[in-house]
């Protein structure tokens, strides 16, 4: 039974709005605020390019957020995640570790060297013979190249640097690689996604595929997309990684979570980011 929920109605309204605005632009009208919001890709659905993609329309979590939350994200001065972005920018050129290096020592200008990086991680990493995600890649640079200590998962430093690196792909479409090398891990991530778990016996798909846009108590279910991560989550009062969010979801269905950076969650991250193919990188997004 498919009922037209307010969210579904809003979705079609947004589509209408987008089309109208687009037509307006083509006709040479002035860009309105609404047009700018739609034109950045966050408010409009993306059509999957892969065959057999489970979703007909791919939506950023931005779409499901309340107006005020969207405004907070979009305002450079109001978005609290930007404090971490700035910290990450400072860390980029800060010398640390026994090798007396900074990220900049090897990678120079992040705007050039890191452009696109946030769209494609997790990647297959030959030395590990498995996937590596962005946080792990940053920490590996620190321990191997800089001879510095790895940052903790929830540390402001790792969040800041991850946001800063991903931010260099702002607005670029998410595009993790699905090829012969990554496929086996993608498959594991997919199996994880569809597996019921916990005492409440739900899979990721039960909320984020079958029921997105609907209300669970006062919260609107999203598609669980990762393009805004690390996200500034109002509930956390600070940014957090998609790995942290996985833990939270697992706990909510009363399942034993895996560790952040575990093979299970990195594979899941790859699969989830594949589900969000084409969505613009938004970090640091703001979410409830």
């Amino acid at each position: 039974m498919i009922r037209k929920t307010p969210e579904l109605a809003e979705r079609s309204n947004m589509r209408q709005l987008f089309k109208m605005v687009l037509a307006g632009c083509l006709a040479g009208s002035l860009m309105t605020g609404a047009a700018m919001a739609a034109a950045d890709g966050k408010s409009e659905a993306v059509t999957p390019t892969s065959k057999d993609h489970p979703l007909e329309e791919i939506w950023s979590g931005y779409h499901f957020a309340k107006k005020g939350t969207k405004e907070t994200q979009d305002n450079e001065f109001d978005n609290p995640g930007n404090l971490w972005l700035e910290q990450g920018m400072e860390l980029w050129s800060k010398v640390d570790g026994d090798e007396k290096k900074s990220c900049q020592s090897c990678h120079n200008d992040a705007a050039k060297s890191m452009k696109g990086v946030g769209t494609r991680y997790p990647i297959f990493f030959p030395p590990w013979k498995k996937l590596i995600n962005l946080e792990q890649r940053i920490n590996l640079c620190r321990t191997k190249q800089m001879k510095a200590k790895a940052y903790k998962w929830k540390s402001n430093e790792l969040l800041g640097l991850t946001i800063f690196v991903s931010r260099q792909s702002l607005g670029m479409p998410a595009a993790v690689v699905l090829d012969d090398k990554t496929k086996p891990f993608w498959e594991k991530g997919k199996a994880h996604y569809y597996k019921r778990r916990g005492q409440l016996d739900m899979s990721c798909a039960h909320c984020h595929q079958a029921n997105y846009g609907k209300k669970i108590r006062s919260n609107t279910l999203t598609q669980g997309q990762a393009n805004g991560f690390p996200t500034y989550r109002l509930k956390w009062g600070k940014p957090g990684s998609i790995q942290r969010r996985f833990k939270g979801c697992n706990k909510q269905v009363r399942a034993k979570p895996y560790k952040m950076g575990s093979d299970e969650y990195v594979n899941l991250e790859h699969y989830v980011r594949w589900r969000g193919q084409g969505l613009p990188i938004e970090t640091p997004s703001v979410r409830p």
Binding site: K195, R196, R197, G198, Q199, L200, D201, M202, H206, C207, A210, N211, N250, K251, R254, A255, K256, P257
Partner: peptide, 19 residues
């Protein structure tokens, strides 16, 4: 269905300790 079974204890995966 997404609906939990409210009176069953078996057939689950990775139930968190206290549950």
């Amino acid at each position: 269905t997404i609906m939990p079974g409210f009176y069953r204890t078996k057939g689950f995966t990775r139930v968190k300790g206290k549950f």
